[in-house]
């Protein structure tokens, strides 16, 4: 569950953003669309706690994220927010499985290989578990990134342009996959994209202007 009120952020006086209020419950999906330069990435980073808002509130799991700082923010982010970036980044020296285990360890302080393997299997990439991320195809990497984002059962799953590099067929299946996984994990799914095709797949959407 995620909710924002009167969110404002400025890089400088010239580049300032007023974001519309948004709300997305557990198991629901919210699409945030808009052309380049309307602050999509900025909003995503605000929601993820990577940027601190100028004013306004972001509430995730009954916590005002904007008020958290330092170590507490890092811990909260790891524990409650799952992020899938447009380009899947991994720790190159670790296997896919170890990358998932690392995510669990950083947030919760314990290593859960069984859970990680279960997630990879649920996303159909169980066989890639012991490979290095560089050996995976683009599609497999994206699935591994989704699996990692779900590792700590986050309250919110944030995704950045998950489909923009894909053809229609694959875009659909990734959209489906995200919805499925978010629903079964009980997470609020927020998709930030300029891909208009997704508007047909998800009903709740907000346009940034």
């Amino acid at each position: 569950m995620i909710e924002t009120r009167q969110l404002y952020f400025e890089y400088s006086a010239q580049t300032a953003f007023n974001f519309p209020d948004l709300r997305c419950g557990a198991g629901e999906t919210l699409l945030i669309t808009g052309p380049s330069g309307t602050g999509k990435t900025t909003l995503l980073h605000l929601l993820a706690g990577l940027l601190t808002p100028g004013s306004g509130q972001i509430e995730i799991a009954k916590t005002d994220v904007g008020k958290l700082t330092g170590r507490a923010l890092d811990r909260f982010r790891g524990r409650h927010i799952g992020i899938v970036f447009q380009q899947a980044h991994f720790v190159a020296s670790l296997s896919v499985l170890e990358n998932l285990v690392l995510a669990g360890w950083l947030a919760l302080g314990k290593k859960d290989g069984k859970k990680a393997l279960g997630l990879l299997e649920r996303l159909d990439i169980g066989q890639q578990a012991y490979k290095k991320p560089a050996q995976l195809s683009v599609g497999q990497k994206q699935r591994a990134a989704i699996a990692r984002a779900l590792m700590n059962r986050p309250a919110v799953l944030l995704t950045d342009e998950p489909t923009s590099n894909l053809d229609d067929k694959n875009a659909w299946s990734v959209a489906e996959l995200l919805r499925e996984q978010a629903q079964s994990a009980g997470a609020a799914l927020v998709i930030v994209t300029h891909d208009h095709r997704l508007k047909h797949a998800f009903h709740q959407s907000i346009d940034l202007l």
């Binding site: 993820a48 170590r71 890092d74 982010r77 790891g78 992020i83 690392l102 990692r148």
Partner: peptide
């Protein structure tokens, strides 16, 4: 990116 990633996963600066 890798280091930024560790931060988004809950890793602290320290």
């Amino acid at each position: 990116y890798e280091l930024a990633l560790l931060r988004t996963l809950g890793g602290s600066r320290i």
